[in-house]
Amino acid sequence: MQANVKWVDGDTFIGRSESGHNIVFDAGSNSAAPSPMEMVLMSAGCCSSVDVVSILKKSKQDFDNVEVKLTSERAQTAPRVFTKMNLHFVVTGRNVSQKHLARAVQLSAEKYCSVALMLDKTVEITHSHEVIESEVK
C-alpha cells in the first residue's frame, strides 16, 4: 500500500491513496478538515464497524443502523499520543441479540480490526455496546 500527502497551504494537506481517493487534513486551528489524530480515531471506528456489520449480517440480525461513538484520551505533552480509546457500538434494530452483538464486537477487537489491533499495542482500547429497539416496520 502506498499514499501521498501534499501540503496545500497553512496547516492544510491533501492525502491521496493508492486507489486514487483524496482526503483533506488540517493540522492547525482553522479546522478546515479533520486532524491526523482525528482521522486515526475515526479509522479505528470505521475498521471495527465494518467487522461488526459483517458479523451481524452473517448472524442474520435484523438491524437498521450501526453507529460507533468514539472517545479518547491523549497524553498531555508531546508527542500527544492516544493513551485510551473507547468504541461504543449502538445498534438499532428489531430483536437484535445482545449476545450476537457482544460476540461481533469481541471478534472485531480480538481478531479482525487491523487498525485497532495495531493501536492496541500502545493504547488502552475498550469496547462497549447497546441495542436500541426500533419501531416495527
Rank of each mutant, 00 (worst) to 15 (best):
V131H: 03
D11E: 13
E67S: 08
N30I: 12
K60S: 10
V68N: 00
K111V: 10
G15L: 01
G28P: 03
N4Y: 07
I23P: 00
D26N: 14
V123F: 03
A27S: 15
L107M: 11
E73F: 01
A104Q: 05
V5R: 04
M118E: 06
L41E: 03
E124N: 12
V90G: 06
D51I: 02
V24M: 13
A104S: 13
S128R: 05
G10I: 11
N86Q: 11
Q2V: 09
K137H: 13
L119A: 02
R94D: 13
C113H: 00
F13P: 03
N86I: 03
N65P: 01
K84V: 02
I132V: 15
D120M: 03
A44I: 08
G93S: 10
I132A: 06
T92Y: 09
K99Y: 08
M39T: 14
V131N: 03
G45T: 00
S49C: 05
A27L: 09
W7R: 09
S35R: 11
I14A: 05
K69C: 10
P36D: 08
D26C: 09
A44C: 10
Y112T: 07
N22H: 12
N4F: 09
W7Y: 11
K6R: 14
S48G: 04
Q2Y: 10
A3N: 11
H129G: 09
L117S: 04
K121E: 12
S48F: 01
L117K: 11
R80G: 06
A102C: 04
K60N: 10
P79S: 08
S49V: 04
V136Y: 13
S134R: 13
F89M: 01
V8P: 02
F25E: 02
V8C: 09
R74M: 09
Y112V: 06
F89Q: 00
N30Y: 10
G20C: 05
K58I: 00
